[in-house]
């Protein structure tokens, strides 16, 4: 479990499936059945064309480090300094994450480095999708 004091996501009806997926160790995206656009964050229609028929798809979990800061401001539930990153999934969408199992330094956090998803339990119901440096066997194709 993460340290106390952290903001815990409160799922809404439109995002419940995403958080259920994370709990099961699956990173779920949505793809539009009309225009094939794959997107995040979840919503029951396509943000590109407005079509209401969308499919839930499982992401590979592979990503690259797109950008980040190393936060030094006191933050409840975190030990500073720590990185707040945006990762770009192989499927295209970007999402915010922390980079786990990695030194929180500019030297260790190299832009475009391959990452893979890992799930961090923060409460009985919620596991956060987080990322860590990719192991050799699952290296990102976008590296």
């Amino acid at each position: 479990m993460a340290e106390p004091g952290r903001e815990i996501p409160k799922p809404t009806p439109e995002t419940q499936h995403f958080w259920d997926g994370c709990k099961q160790g699956e990173l779920l995206l949505q793809t539009c059945k009309s225009c094939d656009h794959t997107y995040f964050p979840p919503r029951p229609f396509c943000p590109d064309c407005g079509h209401r028929e969308v499919a839930v798809v499982k992401a590979t979990g592979r990503a690259r480090l797109f950008s980040y800061i190393i936060n030094h401001l006191p933050t409840p539930g975190f030990e500073v300094p720590f990185a707040i990153a945006v990762v770009e999934l192989d499927e295209g969408p970007r999402m915010m994450a922390n980079i786990l199992e990695c030194e929180q330094t500019p030297e260790a956090l190299v832009l475009d480095m391959p990452l893979e998803v890992t799930f961090q339990p923060v409460s009985d119901d919620i596991s956060l999708p987080q990322f860590k440096p990719a192991s050799q066997s699952t290296g990102s194709g976008s590296a």
Binding site: P9, P11, T75, I84, M96, N98, L128
Partner: peptide, 17 residues
């Protein structure tokens, strides 16, 4: 849901990302 749990809290650690 999708940003605050990762520790962003104020403009200095959001706007700069």
């Amino acid at each position: 849901q999708f940003e605050r749990p990762f520790g962003v809290s104020r403009p200095p650690n959001m706007f700069t990302i």
